[in-house]
Simulated assay, not measured.
Amino acid sequence: MEKTRRHLSGLGFALLAAVINGSVGVFITLSARMALESSAIAFYKCFLAVVILAIFLWANATLRQSIRNVFRSPILAAAGFFGVFVMNSFEVRAYRLESVATVVLMFLAGATVATQGLTIFMLSQRMTVGRAIAIGLCSAGVFLLMPKYLSFSAAAGCLLGAIAGVGYGTYMVIAQRFALKARLEDIFGMMVWGTIFLLPEYIVGGARIPSFDAWGMLIWLAMFPTILGYFLTTAAVTRIGASKVQLLELSEPLFAALMAWYFLNELLSSGQIMGGLAIVLASYAGDVIDKLVPGTHRQRRPSWRGSR
């Protein structure tokens, strides 16, 4: 009974994360329209998350210990680098160059390939037929997403979105491999490291202070997609694993496309819809095929060990 409850809660957390993360592109695009640089948006959404989390930790009398733990954990540093710095830095820039729905799909393609590939190395799992098909479908989806005459900015936006997805997929595997928990302390540590990594490019970009109107968007990005998004994703990963979470979060493009249509009047072409379907089917098909093929879930003997 406890195992079933834990599994169902993991499914729910993953779906909620997909809904919340689907709003990221819209609010980043709206923030950019307020003359905010990409480096400033990425930095402040994470910096504000650190401040908000610090207030909660201070209220619980655990702030001092949490700060000490941040700089003692290379795992939190790695999670902050891939899951905060890489994801936010590249994702924010991608939304300036390409439509929200396309960036989200490229993001998921990168996350799918990274998750399927890294689970082989970091979680000692076998390369299966399902994983190979998932990667192949992602590649086909990326090809279909590209318009016939691709401009430099559109290509750059797609590439940046995919790199952001690789960072996110890497973070999910790290969270599973080293059993990161959905605690305020761990999310605070990730945000601190991510903010530190984002600081140099914010300074180089001019270190501009946001206008009064932009703070509302940044606070929304800090509280919901950032803090709550990481909490839900980490909670889901520890319950059902990185691959299943990545599968369930493939519903994110639907929410992102609906929000982009409503708030930004953005629409997908027929080719992009076909490419999106291929990417969304990638992990689903891989999971189904692996269940049908005997012996694909057996793990290799771990070749290395690690701990927090």
Rank of each mutant, 00 (worst) to 15 (best):
G80Y: 06
T29H: 14
S73R: 06
S23P: 05
L281T: 02
E2R: 09
V84T: 15
R126V: 03
Q176R: 02
Q272Y: 02
G83K: 01
L137I: 03
V237R: 07
G136C: 00
S139N: 04
R208H: 10
R301V: 13
R183A: 14
T233W: 02
R298Q: 12
G306T: 02
E249F: 04
I135V: 13
Q272H: 08
R33N: 08
S89K: 01
F178C: 09
I163G: 10
F121V: 07
L57P: 14
Y202C: 05
V280S: 13
Q272C: 13
S66N: 07
M122Y: 00
D290V: 00
R72N: 02
G271I: 09
T170A: 08
A77K: 04
V26I: 06
M127F: 07
G169N: 13
L160S: 02
L221P: 11
P74D: 11
P200L: 08
L11C: 13
A182M: 05
F82D: 11
S31M: 06
S270N: 13
I120T: 01
V51R: 13
A207Q: 06
S89Q: 15
L53G: 15
G271L: 05
G241S: 03
G130L: 00
I209S: 09
V103R: 12
Q299T: 07
I75Y: 07
M146L: 14
G12A: 09
